[in-house]
Design a protein around this nucleic acid. Structure first.
Length: 840
RNA sequence: GGGCGAUUAGCUCAGUUGGUUAGAGUACUUGCCUUACAAGCAAGGUGUCGUAGGUUCGAGUCCUACAUCGCCCACCA
């Protein structure tokens, strides 16, 4: 028997171990149809946050649902080495101990990274366990493990051989703190206060100057031209002449290039090919020299004259001071502009000329766009609008910079000897080759995750059975980083989509709608919430509170009320168990009308819930199941069942209904439903998680009884309302036109019923078939009269409205017939009611 | 500049393919310790569905424009 009180700690302790020990999470029953999900591998950088809890619970819900529906489910877990993120953390930790990464050396540093990884993997494991996630731990992978590393090498080499990976010198996004290149996606643009520095570039041999505006004056040491638009009439005569670079004193040409926008500022732009992507292009067009002026760490180099060694921002200040002194500064115009920051280190990103490895995106992305046109083979986003996000990215994406100047990650399988380059899975056999020092972007390996984790490039085993996966669940913030890249790599290498469905959820925000972040201190630790309310409450709250794709404002009050819901379920279960403990078998043959009523409601609920589960609309699952449990089952059926709890039909119905309820809730709240299931006198499996999901049963739909009980409940409600509104105390009498036990018992009318009319104040309560006249000694007050007038008015208005509607021939002819009939019925009953009221 | 989303009860949010008196939780008011549950039960009020047009017999829902807020992408030399 269940304890008197729902105690989430008691309910949730040891249950995960029980499931694990019974191997329920493991896939492999080939007699069933396969269903697979790969977890978005969390970074081994820290603890899981609420967003992870949300994301993984969604997956657990789907996988538990499918498992109960009889699928052979693989939910493949794993973690991501998270190259730059982890490296930054380990560098930070070493720094705290006074150790420098470079002094330590590559090999020792990697040992530290693996140590860090192991620590965080175990934290993640224990958090997964607390959340109750039914991942198949026997299939767990890590992006740096041997199999995945082989897949990464294979893909790199293959793309290289196909000409889709190349090495080139280009302007890339440089993180001067982590000292590595970044992809476009790893740069976060933030609006900050900056300035336009308007400088004087004197014409060669003249006292006239051009006004050139820049936001980054310190790059002027790298200027190799200034440009005007070829169509800009103001400056036609200047093209081909020279200006003197301020401070430096060097002559640089004035060129004509479309990059210069005549409508922007003065229409004159300085060209710094080594430090600006647009200028780089201009430089290519005009054969300009590329002069680097900034070092890897963001300090100025030897080309910056006396500013050499200063940080680029210090140099900017000093330079501006000097420009001012030399009267080369016209003005400083404060502006707000978007400046790129490194996603991981938050350093201001420097556009930087360097030699990097790139993935050529053109063909790969076209394949995706083509495939998305085919309904049978495309990735189906839920909600569908997110497909556009991917398609937009695919139709306008730049080559992907994949090399990172880091140590933690997959080392690039390229070797150099003088000017020769060798790319291969294994190192070249002869001497003198040196391997590329760099590693790959962490997303290069995650892009292969859905198939590399399944043994690919090996084509059998897990890959053969479970790929393509069925559903991927992730947040909209990593569609570019990950979903897009998985999709093109999967199409390129397996010729299949990586997953059939892609369920997208939003972000967790605080109550004011702000992102949760360490700096704001508004983060909520899911483990704290589990301690207070239980994993079941947290899971249910997170996954049923918003529609798909929407952000979630975390509200502890709502979490609390979810706990209340579980407590309600717990107590309803106690009631059922107290009354049906002795049952030997479920027999749904001798049923009374209330049994039939709840079975009807139950089966309609099963139908709806299943439909919404299939569509991943878990908020709608909640809407129907919550109402069913709290209103239909608890408030009404259990109350009525108290009058027939000794009958086999009612006992069976109670148990049958409760069983179906906890099964439907199990994917959401695995712990409490298992706890209850284990107490049931009759069970179809040793654990609820391997029991079968409820199936809609047409034979248990009793339309007639449903109507009867609906009306009885309606009548009871009206009756109570009348008592309350008129302040009628217990000592009244009542004359009724029925002998309905349920009403009499529910309203406790046994001793109040009389057969004769009385000449005192009366109150009428009626529905279609039931009528009661309550006699009560009470002064009729002004309020009572007003109340009655109000009722009559409302009714009259409503009747008028309905009559107008029904007199509208367009409505009658065009609206569906049953709707018109319903309107007619309503009109009729309203008229009757009005008549009753006015006759009193 | 391009795109996406939001705007519904005091608050947090639902609202399927249009169906005619718009829902839930929470908060609030009133009355109840009725042996599953007071973390509960019973009853109750609450809305010009952002604004303005349009389509339709019928619009929270579809179309157009606008407003406010938020997000994404691109660009800003």
């Amino acid at each position: 028997m269940l304890d008197k009180k729902y105690d989430q700690k008691l309910v949730e302790s040891n249950r995960y171990e029980y499931w694990l020990n019974h191997h329920y999470f493991e896939c492999g029953d080939t007699s069933k149809k396969p269903y697979s999900i790969v977890i978005p591998p969390p970074n081994v950088t820290g603890k899981l946050h609420l967003g992870h809890a949300w994301d993984t619970t969604l997956q657990d819900i789907i996988i538990r649902f499918k498992r109960m529906q009889g699928y052979d489910c693989l939910w493949l877990p794993g973690t991501d080495h998270a190259a730059i993120a982890t490296e930054a953390k380990v560098v930070g930790r070493l720094k705290d101990h006074g150790i420098n990464k470079y002094e330590l050396g590559r090999e020792e540093f990697l040992k530290e990274c693996f140590k860090w990884t192991d620590e965080h993997k175990s934290i993640i494991h224990s958090q997964w366990a607390k959340l109750g996630l039914s991942v198949d731990l026997t299939k767990e992978r890590f992006t740096l493990d041997e199999g995945l590393s082989n897949a990464v090498k294979y893909v790199f080499v293959d793309l290289y051989n196909k000409g889709l990976i190349y090495r080139g010198e280009k302007i890339i996004n440089w993180d001067p703190v982590a000292k590595t290149a970044l992809s476009n996606e790893e740069v976060i643009y933030k609006e900050i206060d900056g300035a336009f520095y308007h400088l004087k570039y004197y014409l060669d041999g003249s006292d006239k100057y051009l006004e050139v505006a820049t936001t980054r004056p310190e790059t002027l040491f790298g200027d190799t031209a200034v440009a005007v638009n070829p169509k800009d009439e103001r400056y036609q005569d200047l093209v081909g002449k020279y200006v003197i670079l301020p401070i430096v004193g060097k002559k640089i040409p004035i060129i004509a290039d479309v990059h210069a926008d005549p409508t922007f500022g003065t229409g004159i732009v300085k060209i710094t090919p080594a430090h600006d992507p647009n200028d780089f292009e201009v430089g290519n067009r005009h054969g300009l020299e590329r002069i680097k002026v900034i070092n890897e760490d963001g300090t100025m180099n030897e080309n910056a004259l006396k500013y050499q060694g200063m940080d680029r921002f210090v140099a900017r200040e000093e330079l501006v001071k000097d420009l001012k002194e030399k009267d080369l500064l016209i003005k400083i115009e404060p502006i707000k502009h978007a400046v790129g920051h490194s996603e991981r280190t938050n350093a201001i990103v420097e556009p930087y000329l360097s030699k990097q490895w790139f993935v050529k995106m053109d063909g790969l992305s076209k394949k995706v766009l083509e495939n998305q046109k085919n309904k049978e083979t495309k990735v189906n986003f839920v909600p569908a609008r997110f497909e556009k996000i991917m398609n937009n990215w695919m139709s306008d994406c730049h080559d992907w910079c994949i090399s990172r100047q880091l140590w933690w990650g997959h080392r690039i399988p390229a070797w150099y000897k003088n000017d020769e380059v060798y790319v291969g899975i294994n190192p070249p056999k002869d001497d003198g080759w040196v391997q590329d020092e760099d590693v790959l972007d962490t997303w290069f390996s995650s892009a292969l995750w859905p198939f590399s984790t399944m043994g690919w490039p090996n084509q059998d085993g897990l890959f053969k059975r479970y790929f393509p996966t069925d559903t991927l669940v992730t947040g909209y913030d990593i569609i570019f980083f990950w979903v897009c890249r998985m999709t093109f790599q999967s199409l390129e290498f397996t010729e299949k989509r990586p997953f059939k469905h892609c369920l997208i959820h939003g972000l967790i925000r605080d109550k004011q709608g702000r992102k949760m972040s360490k700096s704001l201190g508004n983060g909520v630790d899911p483990m704290d919430m589990i301690d207070t309310y239980g994993a079941d409450a947290l899971r249910y709250y997170l996954t049923t509170s918003t529609a798909c794709g929407m952000d979630l404002k975390f509200d502890e009050e709502k979490l609390k009320s979810t706990w209340n819901f579980i407590n309600k379920l717990w107590n309803a279960s106690r009631f059922v168990l107290m009354n049906a403990q002795d049952i030997k078998e479920i027999s749904l043959t001798n049923l009374n009308k209330q049994d039939k009523w709840i079975l009807t409601k139950l089966n309609k609920t099963i139908k709806d819930v299943t439909k919404y589960m299939e569509k991943f609309e878990f908020n709608n699952v909640n809407a129907v199941i919550y109402t069913f449990i709290w209103n239909d089952f608890c408030d009404n059926y259990i109350e009525m069942a108290k009058f027939s709890s000794d009958l086999v039909g009612t006992k069976s119905t109670l148990l049958y209904t409760l069983t179906a309820i906890i099964k439907m809730l199990h994917p959401f709240m695995p712990y409490v439903t298992e706890a209850i299931y284990q107490e049931l006198p009759l069970r179809d499996a040793e654990s609820i998680m391997i029991s079968s999901y409820p199936v809609y049963d047409k034979k248990l739909i009793f339309n007639e009884e449903e109507l009867v009980i609906d009306e009885i409940i309606d009548f009871i409600k009206n009756y109570r309302n009348t008592l309350k509104e008129n302040n009628i105390l217990a000592n009244y009498q009542v004359k009724v036109n029925f002998n309905e036990e349920l009403i009499i018992k529910m309203l406790k009318l046994q001793d109040k019923i009389i057969n004769e009319e009385k000449d005192i104040t009366k109150f009428k309560v009626s529905t279609k078939n039931y009528e009661a006249i309550i006699y009560y000694e009470k002064e009729i007050t002004e309020d009572d009269i007003k109340q009655k007038e109000k009722l009559i008015n409302e009714l009259t208005l409503s009747i008028q409205k309905r009559e107008n509607l029904l007199n509208n021939q367009n409505f009658v002819s065009k609206a569906p017939a049953d709707l018109v009939n319903k309107e007619k019925e309503k009109l009729q009953s309203e008229k009757e009611e009005l008549a009753k009221l006015t006759n009193e």
